[in-house]
Computed example of a mutant assay.
Amino acid sequence: MARIVQFDRTGGPEVLTLRDVEVGAPGAGEVRIRVEAIGLNRAEIMFREGAYFDRPSFPSSLGYEAAGTVEALGQGVTGFAPGDPVAVVPGFAQSRYGTYGDLVLVPATAVVPRPADVDPVQAAAVWMAYLTAYGPLVESGQVRPGDHVLITAASSSVGTAAIQMARHIGAVPIATTRGAAKRQRLLDAGAAHVVVTDEEDLVARVKEITGGEGVRLAFDPVAGPGVETVALAVAPGGTLVVYGALDKRPTPLPNAQSYPALSTRTYTLFEITMDPERLRRAVAFVNAGLAGGSFTPVVDRTFDLADITGAHRYMAANGHVGKIVVTVGREDADS
């Protein structure tokens, strides 16, 4: 029997329950993984609440990321063997698969090798964050050495990954945070500048930093009416990428009457993870950054699997910087 987190109705963290579940053998194209660590993401909060684009079917599992070892392979799966250290990337629907458990089934297309020198906690903190940042900052070729990059809500795991990726490219990351409490931690994470939006005028500060020009790329997970302010911080000919919807209010489209000429687009990491060739390039790029020391996932705090509700409450409180990781203890692994 496996220990799997499930829920039977949408709602707060209290709907999550750790249960004994028969996982069974992997089907064609699937891998069964003995999980050691699980990376948490805000998408899982939204899925649990019924506010995600993918809706749960009860009883529902959840989770996009994990690190562990291969236990069994389904028909047609090649390139892995039992005992291999691996990680799971977000390349599937949570309504079909989930990673919150000590033994899980996932599609082989979402499994990547885990370098021997990357421990499970670090590996569980990598893929959602770095693949999300990779698309706009690297794959599109929009960011070049010397460019300024504005990273809003930068204390998230994606934000800290984007800071490191901008640095790796040779760009200048400008991070934003609402309150001053996270300023130093973002500087420690590699931000060249931090704008505290509750205390500073975002556009004025960005123009000051960039010599009046603005940023080449703005990378925003918030959306909503505030996107208009972010757009004003973009240089003429620059790009505004919206990759989330933390603000549920309608998001206006910046127009030429009020803003400099800029490109605007939405983005999701599934553009990378659902395309085998793009995923191959992304995995090679991120693993090279990990091996070279340019990329070091920022792990804010770890929780035990038995305290999954506490982990979700901690994430919802929004006081963390970087990734929240759930570890699978010996008592779970031996169940």
Score class of each variant (00 low, 15 high):
Met128Asn: 07
Arg9Trp: 09
Gly226Pro: 09
Asp304Val: 08
Ala233Ile: 09
Leu40Glu: 00
Val111Trp: 00
Ser57Thr: 15
Leu246Gly: 12
Gly292Trp: 08
Ala154Asp: 00
Leu232Phe: 10
Ala124His: 02
Arg48Cys: 14
Gln122Thr: 13
Ile33Asn: 01
Val31Trp: 05
Lys207Glu: 06
Asn255Val: 14
Thr176Ala: 09
Ala218His: 02
Asp220Lys: 05
Pro26Asp: 07
Lys207Tyr: 07
Arg313Gln: 12
Tyr52Cys: 04
Arg3Cys: 12
Val172Asp: 06
Arg265Ser: 12
Phe7Asp: 02
Ala284Pro: 06
Ile169Leu: 13
Gly63Ser: 03
Gly11Ala: 10
Ala180Asp: 11
Pro26Ile: 14
Arg183Met: 02
Leu103Lys: 11
Lys323Thr: 04
Arg48Thr: 06
Asp300Arg: 08
Phe58Ile: 13
Leu131Gln: 03
Gly190Asn: 13
Arg183His: 03
Gly83Val: 09
Asp332Cys: 12
Gln94Thr: 04
Glu200Met: 07
Ile174Thr: 10
Arg278Lys: 15
Gln184His: 15
Pro115Arg: 13
Glu228Met: 14
Val283His: 04
Leu150Ala: 06
Arg205Ile: 02
Asn318Tyr: 11
Leu240Asp: 05
Pro107His: 04
Arg183Cys: 03
Pro56Ala: 14
Thr152Phe: 00
Gly29Ser: 03
Ala153Cys: 08
Tyr314Phe: 15
Ala189Glu: 01
Gly292Gln: 06
Asn287Lys: 13
Tyr130Arg: 02
Gly289Asp: 01
Met128Phe: 11
Ala175Leu: 14
Thr176Leu: 09
Ala256His: 15
Asp275Phe: 10
Glu228Gly: 12
Leu16His: 09
Gly329Ala: 15
Leu131Gly: 03
His320Pro: 03
Glu44Thr: 11
Leu269Arg: 01
Val234Asn: 03
Asp54Tyr: 14
Glu36Asn: 14
Ser258Leu: 14
Val196Ile: 04
Val194His: 00
Asp307Cys: 08
Ala25Val: 10
Glu36Arg: 15
Ser263Pro: 06
Gly146Leu: 06
